[in-house]
């Protein structure tokens, strides 16, 4: 087979030399048409493939350099904070630290609970009831992040000497967001209520955050 092909090939070429001058340009022309039709010849394909593979390699090599900027293990694994709440009187709020961030633990008074429950859900930007934001049977314990959901300042109002805003909860003096006694956003630029972190009562007087 090979021999005969070679022979044919040679035969064709000798024909060219003998004067079929138009044969070669014709072949070129059809090649060009092929390229125009598919938009891709073999060299283009190789270029695209090589650049594509190299690009994937660069992206892969970038992963460690991007990942190193994530919190390191000693930061990200700070998972739990336990707090004894037995000494917190009604009307009092304490600030505790969980994952480098402050958390408000607020012992609500009867009046504050009544105020929170009196609000119609339709008046809220981020509708949630006090029940939904506290543990069952423990609606007097409001545990929220002390981090404004706008840009992360610590709202004022945990101490009775600080202003609490017109809704009686907290007010963020950075950009003017006001929260009610259930820690819900009522006015200002913050998009959502103060975040309730994951926590549970491990005894009637101790909560574990995280």
């Amino acid at each position: 087979m090979k021999n005969s092909e070679a022979k044919n090939g040679k035969g064709d070429m000798s024909k060219d030399v003998e004067g079929h001058a138009f044969k070669k340009p014709q072949a070129d022309l059809s090649e060009q048409t092929d390229k125009a039709l598919s938009g891709l010849d073999r060299r283009d394909f190789l270029n695209v493939a090589a650049v594509g593979i190299a690009g994937m390699g660069v992206c892969g090599a970038a992963i460690p350099f991007i990942a190193q900027m994530n919190p390191s293990k000693d930061v990200s694994e700070q998972s739990k904070t336990e707090v004894d709440i037995s000494t917190i009187q009604p009307g009092q709020t304490v600030k505790v630290v969980w994952r480098d961030q402050p958390v408000f633990i607020r012992h609500l008074t009867e009046q504050e609970i009544t105020e929170a429950n009196a609000v119609a859900l339709s008046d809220l930007r981020d509708p949630e009831t006090l029940e939904q934001r506290t543990k069952a049977g423990k609606t007097n314990w409001l545990v929220t992040m002390a981090v404004c959901t706008h840009l992360g300042c610590i709202p004022q109002g945990s101490n009775s000497s600080e202003p609490r805003g017109e809704y009686g909860g907290y007010i963020c003096s950075c950009h003017g967001s006001a929260f009610d006694t259930a820690g819900r956003i009522r006015r200002g630029p913050a998009p959502t209520n103060l975040v309730v972190p994951p926590y549970r009562f491990i005894s009637p007087s101790v909560i574990s955050i995280g």
Binding site: N70, V75, D100, Q101, G152
Partner: peptide, 10 residues
């Protein structure tokens, strides 16, 4: 958190 390398500036 990625920009800060933590949950708060650290």
């Amino acid at each position: 958190i990625w920009v800060l390398g933590g949950f708060a500036p650290n």
